[in-house]
Design a protein around this nucleic acid. Structure first.
Lengths: 209, 209
DNA sequence: TCATGTGAAGAGCTTCACAGCA
DNA sequence: TGCTGTGAAGCTCTTCACATGA
């Protein structure tokens, strides 16, 4: 079998479809067309069809996509069938907000622990999620089979912390620290740099851009 | 003059260069090559040269780029020469964390006010930034010439709030609410959806992706 | 008839390869 | 010589246009 690897852009859109399907299913909508999905998402109908068709023929010509069936297919593709355990590393203001955010608003994902080095916050709980000293990371990653680390540590600590994270067995990092992490090629790092994103937006605050 | 508009991807990289230049200048480094910038950023040297060359010839053949000169050029291109006033709308956990983050760690940008509807938090201050009732948005946007709104409101309120924001005179929105905002074409919206980004990452937690 | 699925064309961005200049 | 600046080639992703099938 010679299946091409999925474009990154497609993978980033799949969870958007998933969220809309969740809404639709709650409202007992059973069929949705690519045109209607286009209106909800802002992506073009052709693009949505291409995205879905990449993984197989999930629709019915003449009518559209069965919401429940499509949802299950997307869950399977992403790997969100069954809960995924994640952790947040760095329980400062941003880290704490993210723990709350993911614990409350995110289906499919469990925050099972948080880590920090600051002894004055280690031992505290956010909801039922305990902040643990980072020296224990390996044990806890193993125990809970944690798949993803969300990193919100200060820039100057990011590189050594990331190395510890990788060493503990995690291979996917969602990094908010404003540094380029140098890790092995098989480690998947997704950077969101809130300062950079804001600054680049300023460009568009001027006319005709 | 028939200058093409700048690619979005270029605009998103400029603040990365800016941050590195700031570091270099603090350390009294006066010249930097595209190769060295490549090592710091992870972008290819050719790409960096293309990015910069899009706006003019800022380097010196044979040596590299003067850090101070290049920094000033980039500031001017983005529009970060002079402080830019921004606001955060929705002062919940995430909003509060972002106010702190931008107030503390972000050069070039001032958070001048925050807005919410919750009367129990209106009037509170984060550092010296006051949380104001959103009904006052138009006056304050005018008074401080606020250019960008960072929106961290619940999904169900995002659309009407965004309309108020636009009405107040803001044309650039950094939206964290998990909804597609429907606004006039001249309004620039940048979405960061933390649930979506995390979910799409799960895909890469499996092998060979 | 209507909406999906899909080759082909197009657009946008990145990499290559080298000319140009200090 | 060494590093920038830049057409051309290459790659990736999106849009077009239409064949396909319920």
């Amino acid at each position: 079998m010679v299946s091409k690897r999925a474009p990154k852009s497609v993978i980033r859109r799949l969870p958007v479809y998933l969220r809309i399907l969740d809404h639709l299913i709650i409202n007992n909508v059973e069929i949705i067309s690519s045109k209607e999905l286009s209106e909800e998402t802002g992506f073009s109908a052709e693009q949505i069809r291409k995205d879905l068709a990449f993984f197989g023929a999930f629709g019915t010509r003449g009518s559209g996509y069965n919401t429940d069936y499509l949802r299950k297919k997307i869950l399977k593709i992403i790997g969100l069938d069954g809960q995924t355990n994640i952790t947040v590393i760095g329980a400062g203001h941003l880290g704490t907000a993210l723990i709350r955010y993911y614990a409350q608003k995110n289906p499919y994902v469990n925050v099972v622990a948080a880590f920090d080095v600051d002894s004055s916050i280690v031992g505290q709980k956010i909801f039922d999620i305990e902040i643990v000293d980072i020296s224990n990371i390996k044990d806890i990653v193993n125990k809970y089979d944690i798949k993803v680390a969300v990193m919100t540590v200060p820039a100057e600590h990011a590189q050594p912390v990331a190395e510890k994270v990788v060493e503990s067995g995690i291979s996917v990092i969602f990094n908010f620290a404003p540094v380029k992490l140098r890790l092995a090629d098989n480690i998947h790092v997704h950077n969101v740099d809130l300062s950079i994103e804001l600054q680049s937006l300023i460009y568009y605050a001027n006319t005709n851009r």
